[in-house]
Amino acid sequence: TTYKLILNGKTLKGETTTEAVDAETAERVFKEYAKKNGVDGEWTYDDATKTFTVTE
Protein backbone atom coordinates (compact mmCIF):
# COMPACT_ATOMS: atom_id res chain seq x y z
CA THR A 1 0.00 0.00 0.00
CA THR A 2 1.24 3.49 -0.80
CA TYR A 3 1.20 6.03 2.03
CA LYS A 4 1.85 9.74 1.65
CA LEU A 5 3.51 12.23 4.00
CA ILE A 6 2.89 15.97 3.81
CA LEU A 7 5.56 18.05 5.55
CA ASN A 8 4.47 21.47 6.81
CA GLY A 9 7.68 22.45 8.55
CA LYS A 10 8.84 25.94 9.37
CA THR A 11 11.77 25.63 6.96
CA LEU A 12 10.88 22.50 5.00
CA LYS A 13 7.68 21.85 3.09
CA GLY A 14 6.91 19.05 0.69
CA GLU A 15 5.57 15.56 0.14
CA THR A 16 6.95 12.05 -0.04
CA THR A 17 5.52 8.56 -0.35
CA THR A 18 6.44 5.10 0.88
CA GLU A 19 5.26 1.57 0.27
CA ALA A 20 4.37 -0.20 3.52
CA VAL A 21 2.39 -3.21 4.73
CA ASP A 22 0.35 -1.08 7.14
CA ALA A 23 -0.09 2.43 8.51
CA GLU A 24 1.98 1.67 11.62
CA THR A 25 5.00 0.74 9.50
CA ALA A 26 4.54 3.79 7.27
CA GLU A 27 4.33 6.03 10.34
CA ARG A 28 7.67 4.73 11.65
CA VAL A 29 9.31 5.35 8.25
CA PHE A 30 7.84 8.86 7.99
CA LYS A 31 8.75 9.84 11.57
CA GLU A 32 12.35 8.81 10.93
CA TYR A 33 12.31 10.78 7.65
CA ALA A 34 10.92 13.89 9.38
CA LYS A 35 13.46 13.58 12.20
CA LYS A 36 16.36 13.35 9.72
CA ASN A 37 15.05 16.50 8.05
CA GLY A 38 14.63 18.42 11.32
CA VAL A 39 10.83 18.56 11.22
CA ASP A 40 9.04 17.99 14.55
CA GLY A 41 5.42 18.86 15.16
CA GLU A 42 1.83 17.69 15.36
CA TRP A 43 1.06 14.47 13.47
CA THR A 44 -2.28 13.55 11.92
CA TYR A 45 -3.36 10.60 9.78
CA ASP A 46 -6.25 10.30 7.35
CA ASP A 47 -7.05 6.64 6.73
CA ALA A 48 -9.34 7.41 3.78
CA THR A 49 -6.47 8.94 1.80
CA LYS A 50 -3.60 7.05 3.54
CA THR A 51 -1.98 10.42 4.25
CA PHE A 52 0.09 11.51 7.22
CA THR A 53 0.66 15.20 7.87
CA VAL A 54 3.22 16.75 10.21
CA THR A 55 2.86 20.45 11.01
CA GLU A 56 5.36 22.54 12.97
Rank of each mutant, 00 (worst) to 15 (best):
A34C: 07
R28F: 10
E56G: 05
A23H: 14
K13M: 09
K10N: 09
D40C: 10
A23V: 14
T49G: 05
V21L: 14
T25E: 14
G41Y: 03
R28S: 11
K36F: 11
F52E: 00
D22V: 03
D22T: 06
L7N: 02
L12M: 14
G38Q: 08
T44R: 10
E24A: 12
T2H: 10
D22E: 05
K36L: 13
L12E: 06
E27L: 10
V54M: 05
T53S: 07
K4V: 11
W43F: 04
A26Y: 00
T11N: 15
L7E: 02
K31C: 05
A26T: 01
Y33K: 02
N8I: 11
T55G: 04
T2N: 07
A26W: 00
A20Q: 08
E42T: 14
D47K: 08
G14D: 09
Y3H: 03
V29G: 04
Y45N: 01
K31Y: 07
L12Y: 12
T17M: 10
E32R: 06
E24Q: 14
L12H: 15
T51I: 06
K36E: 12
T44H: 11
E27S: 09
K13W: 12
A26K: 00
L5W: 03
E42C: 09
D40F: 14
F30T: 00
T55L: 06
L5M: 05
Y3D: 00
Y3V: 01
A48I: 10
T55I: 09
A34Q: 02
A20W: 02
F52L: 01
A26D: 00
E24M: 14
E42V: 14
T18M: 15
W43G: 00
E24N: 08
L5C: 07
N37Q: 14
T16C: 08
T16H: 15
T53K: 06
T2G: 05
I6R: 06
Y33Q: 03
R28V: 10
T25Q: 14
A20Y: 02
G38R: 09
A26E: 00
V39L: 10
T55W: 15
N8F: 09
I6G: 02
T49W: 04
D46R: 03
T2R: 11
I6T: 05
K36W: 08
G14I: 15
T11C: 11
T18P: 01
G38C: 06
V54N: 02
K4C: 06
R28I: 09
K50H: 12
L5Y: 02
T53F: 08
V54P: 01
T53L: 06
D22G: 04
E19D: 11
T17F: 13
A23R: 15
G14N: 07
A34R: 01
T16Y: 15
L7S: 03
F30N: 00
Y45D: 00
K36N: 14
V54D: 01
D22R: 04
K31G: 04
E56D: 09
T25A: 15
K36M: 15
E15S: 12
E24C: 09
D46M: 04
T2Y: 10
G41H: 02
D46Y: 04
W43I: 03
K31E: 04
K50S: 05
A34P: 00
E24G: 10
A23F: 14
A23W: 14
I6V: 12
D46P: 00
F30D: 00
E27Y: 12
A48S: 13
D22P: 01
T53E: 05
E56Q: 13
L5P: 00
T55N: 10
E56M: 07
E32I: 08
T16M: 11
Y45P: 00
G38T: 04
E42P: 05
T1C: 06
V39H: 04
K35G: 07
D46Q: 04
N8P: 03
K31Q: 08
T11E: 11
A23Y: 15
G14M: 14
E56T: 08
T53I: 09
T44K: 07
E24Y: 13
T2M: 13
T55C: 06
T44W: 11
E27C: 09
T55R: 06
E27I: 08
E27V: 07
V39Q: 04
E19P: 05
T1I: 11
V39F: 11
D46S: 07
A23P: 15
K4M: 07
A34E: 01
A48T: 11
D22L: 04
T18W: 08
V29T: 11
A20N: 03
K36S: 13
A20T: 06
T49E: 06
A23G: 05
T25H: 15
T16Q: 09
F30I: 01
V21I: 12
E27G: 08
T16I: 15
E15W: 13
T53N: 05
E56P: 05
F52G: 00
G14F: 14
Y33L: 06
V54E: 00
G41T: 02
D40Y: 14
D47N: 09
